[in-house]
Amino acid sequence: MWEKKPVLFLLLATAAILVGTIITMVLPFAWVNTEGDRIATVTPYTPLQQAGRDVYIREGCNNCHTQTVRPLVADVLRYGEYSKSGEFVYDRPHLWGSRRTGPDLARLGGKYPDAWHYQHMAAPVSMIPKSNMPAYAFLKDNQLDPGYIRKCMDVLGFPYTEAEISALNGKTEMDAMVAYMQKLGTGIPKAAAAAVIGDLKNPFPKDATAIRAGEQLFAQNCAACHGEHGDGGIGPELEPESYQDAELFQMIYSGITDNGMPAFSALGSTKVWQLVNYVNYRKEH
């Protein structure tokens, strides 16, 4: 019957697609972004941060970066506390992404000092030699337009002050991007630094193999900030033999996160001890 009646057919087809639509797409609005989801510490974006977010969208960073940490062991170890629905209530649109050509950025805020971002955004390979992230140096040349950003804030209904708007004068898209990067994932308190288990005794003191392994690890994880041979850059110069092994271990393992030194507990204690041996007992070239 329906095979001979196009109008009836169209109605039936519409009904067929609306069932699943209503249940899995419309209905969740009753649960999501409601009181139950609310997290008191999550705040809207400031004008500068929102401007950065808009540049992020324009440049399509979401084609390579996700912004959701899944409650899976490896995800949490690599990126931090898993994402909660309430963290995204001010995200229009969401930027969760579907590909991790680059790392997840959901918990990026506070991971690096600003200086790291300025250098990395302008020339990723200068810090991570094998990176395939495009260089975005041109963001430094684009001035922000405070009037336009005010309009954006009004449409989004986010609070702002006149001082925040006038502070945008002279700022560039690069400043905005870095401000946005530093905001990411900071809506919930930082998880406490991973506790160090066991007593802090160097398992292979001054061992040549450990130093060589540490050299490799240093090149991959530390050189971008402390320089190729530890002679300083974004992070300070690291002189051999100037730390207690245990104290050094603690600094690398847990980081000095308030001052821009990331925690490296995800490397595991063996690798951190190798780094300790490299930093403390390497022969300076």
Binding site: M25, V32, D37, S85, V89, D91, R92
Partner: peptide, 24 residues
């Protein structure tokens, strides 16, 4: 979506809702 200018708009949905609509 809500337009801001000729070439910029913000999604009418936020966060998790936006993601769910998008992948539907």
């Amino acid at each position: 979506e809500v337009p801001v200018s000729l070439f910029k708009s913000y999604s009418a949905y936020a966060g998790t809702n936006d993601a769910n609509v998008q992948w539907w």
